[in-house]
Amino acid sequence: MIDPRFSGFGLGLRKPHYAAFLDGSADVDFVEVISENFMVPGGRPRDILRRVLANYPVALHGVSLSIGSAEGLDRGYLARLRALADEVDPLFVSDHLCWTRTGGFNAHDLLPLPLTEEALAVVCANIDQAQDALGRTMLFENPSSYLSFVGSEMSEWAFLAEMTRRTGCDLLLDINNIHVSGHNHGFDPRAYLAGLPLDRVRQIHLAGHSQGAHLLIDTHDQPVPDPVWRLYGEAMARLGPVAVMIERDDNIPPLEELIAELDIARAHGRQVVAA
């Protein structure tokens, strides 16, 4: 059984860095893997996961649960995720506050939800179903988004706060996503932090983004930029034990560069403790 108040610093498992995670030489406290990459019957992916598990605690981070689908959840998917979670005994099982699936169509992108009472009710019913099916409390990540809908009835932070209150789920706070969405929708990231139940934050993602023509784009292909570091520092000053990781999905640098970036995150954590 894993300590429910785990704290530490980790990285996502990415192919260019497999060797260091397989021989245990990567200086991290935990590893996050994309759940769907390992929801396969067998072969090398499952072998890689077993060998990484021998060296590090693992967090499962999914992209296909589609917790915001109006039509409900895919039971087959939930059964596969349950089987993987039972095998891994992960630190966390997380996914995103978004939707990906409707009417037999799966966008494979984290699509935005309207911030309405109807959507909140759908999301909460789906979370209840998912947590029952998995037998675990899940974490849900605040997404980056590129549009907001006419008729939204609450802020994203109010949505997340009510979601955790109704379902008992926890939060994976992506600091970069707050920055990106704050820029795209014109809200103050500090108001976002102030409005969240920070005692429910169990994990933090740090990442970089790119400047699009009109919007910031959550590309995960750049180092963590200064505004995100500053917001991270402010968040850490108010958080309890938490698992922090750098999330890099593209333009992946040598592992040493990500470890150096993780050291900055560790230093922020120590500064907060010292203060």
Partner: peptide
Amino acid sequence: MSLAALQADFRHWL
């Protein structure tokens, strides 16, 4: 617009 209708429209856009 209902959530289901919004998601159907989003799908058709994509």
